[in-house]
Measured scan of single mutants.
Amino acid sequence: VKVFRALYTFEPRTPDELYFEEGDIIYITDMSDTNWWKGTSKGRTGLIPSNYVAEQ
């Protein structure tokens, strides 16, 4: 598990995607895809765009 911080707010387009706000901490559990990672924030899990976060 790696810890990342959201650089921007992300509004999901599908139920599989995770909503998060700029500054949120996201725990990444799967980075197997280059563009979409699986992450958890505020008790919810979903896909996030990798270019919206920076490693802490």
Rank of each mutant, 00 (worst) to 15 (best):
G46N: 00
I26V: 08
R44T: 07
E17K: 08
F20H: 00
G39R: 00
F4A: 05
I28T: 00
Y52T: 03
T34G: 12
Q56W: 15
E21A: 09
I26S: 00
S41W: 05
A6D: 01
V1G: 13
D33E: 07
A6H: 02
M31H: 06
M31A: 06
R13M: 11
P49T: 05
D16F: 12
D24H: 02
A6F: 02
P12M: 12
P15Q: 10
D30Y: 04
P49F: 04
I26D: 00
E11F: 15
F20E: 00
F10T: 07
R13K: 12
T40F: 15
V3I: 13
R5L: 13
E22F: 07
R13F: 07
V1H: 12
S50L: 03
Y19D: 07
T45E: 12
R44G: 10
D33C: 06
L47F: 12
E21G: 05
I48S: 02
K42R: 14
G43K: 04
P15F: 08
T34K: 14
I48G: 00
R13S: 13
L47Y: 10
D30G: 04
W36L: 07
T29M: 10
T9C: 06
G23P: 00
D33R: 06
D24Q: 06
L47G: 02
E21R: 09
E22N: 05
Y27T: 09
E21I: 08
G39W: 01
M31L: 06
F20N: 00
L18Q: 00
Y52G: 06
T34F: 10
G23C: 07
S41F: 11
D30E: 11
L47T: 06
G46W: 03
Q56N: 11
Y8V: 07
Y8W: 11
K42T: 07
V1P: 11
T9D: 09
T29Q: 09
I48V: 15
G39T: 02
P49M: 06
W37T: 01
D33I: 05
Y8P: 00
G39N: 02
S50I: 06
A6S: 03
T34Y: 09
L7V: 08
R13L: 10
P15N: 10
Y52D: 03
I28H: 00
S32Y: 07
G23W: 05
S41P: 00
L7G: 03
E11I: 15
Y8R: 14
K38Y: 15
N35F: 15
P15R: 10
L7F: 03
A6W: 02
F20A: 04
L18V: 06
L7C: 11
G39Q: 00
I28Q: 01
P12A: 11
D30H: 06
D33G: 09
S41V: 15
Y8Q: 11
M31I: 06
D33L: 07
R44I: 11
V53L: 14
N35C: 15
Y52A: 14
R44N: 10
D24Y: 05
R13H: 10
D30T: 03
G43T: 05
T14M: 09
L18W: 01
E11S: 12
E22M: 13
I25Q: 05
G39D: 01
D33Q: 07
P12C: 04
T45H: 13
Y52V: 07
L18H: 01
Y27P: 00
E11C: 15
R44C: 09
A6K: 01
K38V: 15
W36A: 03
E21T: 07
N35Q: 14
D24T: 06
